[in-house]
């Protein structure tokens, strides 16, 4: 090679929008800050420890597995951080630390790196980690809900140790109570039992608006998902309000907001075209409501997104834009 300065030559285009994977992931991390703050407010130190554990172990496993597989180091793209935070958000506040580490291992190593790393994973890693924990340690994942009473002990929900959806499933709370306005307001703000990151719909929506503003996500998946749930729940409620909770209850309970805004919109595992995104969102919404209404589990967000992740390649095949200048379907 000669010493003189050579010009750079590449194929066009020679300029770039400046978007980067790191930038996108950083925006997602920023969007999760309100939820994180809400989690600390409602669940205190436990939320902090749990999140820190998941993030650190996810990043560590990412580094380690890339190292062992002799691939380039990817912890700088922040995707492992997101997986860690999302996994923590999906855990109950008293979840044992060692189990969280196991969940991180499954999320990063099994669900992501064994498939080839970011971009090649068919399922959302955090979701895979959560489902693994959910099915393996069912009791720890759903049995012992510590009331959010760190802040407020007056609320009636706090004295029971079940999530609103759990109460709905087991009919321990009256439908009328669950659907009343003050309860829904509590659920909107986050004053309910649940996983640390799913309780505050308000904080999640704030994060979602940030992501929309930064154009990291488009409205298609969240709107299709939440909209489908709302329509489904409204129909059920209109058929029989005595056995079905109100649509607002369904919107703000469980992991719907977290799932619709942060989990279903994961770029790698959701369809690429706008029309496909709508199909994906609608599918998630339908499955969620079917599991909530008729399934054995009180909550169906994780399963529905997981199942729809599996259909993503199929949706991508079917939902293609019509190529300019081509009549009919491309």
């Amino acid at each position: 090679m000669s010493e003189e300065q050579l010009y750079s030559v590449s194929s066009s285009p020679h300029v770039h929008s400046g978007a980067s994977i790191h930038g996108i992931m950083r925006d997602v991390v920023i969007a999760m800050v309100p939820t994180f703050i809400a989690a600390i407010i409602f669940f205190g130190l436990n939320a902090l420890i749990l999140t820190a554990t998941c993030v650190i172990s996810c990043v560590f496993f990412e580094y380690l597995s890339r190292r062992i597989m002799k691939r380039n180091n990817t912890i700088n793209d922040l995707s492992a951080v997101i997986t860690g935070v999302l996994l923590a958000f999906n855990l109950p506040p008293t979840f044992p630390i060692w189990m969280a580490v196991v969940g991180s291992f499954v999320a990063i190593v099994i669900a992501k790196q064994l498939f080839g790393g970011l971009g090649y994973n068919p399922f959302n890693p955090a979701l895979a980690g959560r489902l693994f924990l959910f099915l393996s340690f069912a009791f720890a994942m759903s049995g012992d809900w510590t009331p959010w009473s760190y802040i407020n002990t007056e609320n009636i929900v706090a004295t029971t140790s079940a999530t609103p959806l759990g109460m709905l499933q087991e009919s321990t709370g009256s439908i009328a109570f669950l659907s009343n306005n003050s309860n829904i307001m509590n659920m909107f703000l986050g004053k309910v039992n649940g996983c640390i990151g799913e309780v505050s719909a308000l904080a999640l929506i704030l994060g979602g608006l940030y992501l929309l503003w930064r154009k990291v996500i488009t409205w298609h998946i969240p709107v299709a998902y939440i909209g489908t749930v709302a329509v489904f729940a409204t129909i059920l409620y209109m058929i029989d309000p005595s056995t079905n909770a109100s649509p607002l209850f369904h919107l703000f309970s469980g992991g719907l907001m977290l799932g619709a805004i942060f989990m279903a919109t994961d770029m790698v595992t959701s369809p690429t075209d706008r029309s496909g995104m709508l199909v994906f969102g609608i599918g998630c919404g339908l499955l969620t409501m079917i599991i909530r209404k008729w399934g054995a589990y009180p909550e169906g967000v994780s399963f529905s997104i997981f199942i729809m992740n599996a259909t993503t390649p199929l949706i991508n095949r079917v939902c293609k834009p019509r190529v300019f200048g081509v009549k009919g379907k491309a």
């Binding site: 050579l6 590449s10 194929s11």
Partner: peptide
């Protein structure tokens, strides 16, 4: 080889 043959530019692609 890299020592024997010169490059005209820096290729990026």
């Amino acid at each position: 080889t890299n020592d024997a043959a010169k490059c005209r530019f820096e290729y990026n692609g």
